[in-house]
Amino acid sequence: MTELVVIIFSAALVNNFVLVQFLGLCPFLGATCKLEGALGMGLATGLVLTLASAFSYLVERFVLIPLDVTYLRLVSFIVVIGAAVQFTELVLSRAFPLLHKVLGIYIPLIASNCAVLGVALLNSNASRSLAAAIFYGAGAALGFGIVLVLLSSLRERLEGEDVPAPFRGSAITLVTAGILSLAFFGFNGFSRL
């Protein structure tokens, strides 16, 4: 059991997908205008990530390997992720129309989010067990969500500040993201548990 907890902890914080491995940066900068939007984005990506890591494992284990077509791994993962994203967009537009409108273009963009494909490929490279793969996806989603929420709350607080004109908008966001990844440096070297 501690093995799974370690996976989640290391995927979420130690080698955080956004701030340490620098994957999934476009929603990280794009979808964090508002806290609600960032929270929604984190959950949506989390849903896609867990679905994708589970399905990609199953597809590879029960379809690609027996039929010896493992060279199709990348393409089939993309198909799986695309389906997961469509499913998430459906769920969002039906159950949370407000969130669907606020996130807008960023939901289909999850399909092109390198963190999602990254999880699927890393899972298959490290040939983890199904449970480990799902936990790794969940850990990555958790890390992605935490960082998204943090940055959006920081950006909302920045609205009232008198930031110098050239730095307003995405420039100060990038500076903040930089300092955030500076802080996440504290976590490297943790995997020596």
């Binding site: 690609l64 039929l67 393409v75 089939s76």
Partner: peptide, 8 residues
Amino acid sequence: GTVVLSSL
């Protein structure tokens, strides 16, 4: 390969 992908 093509059969697998399309069915998926």
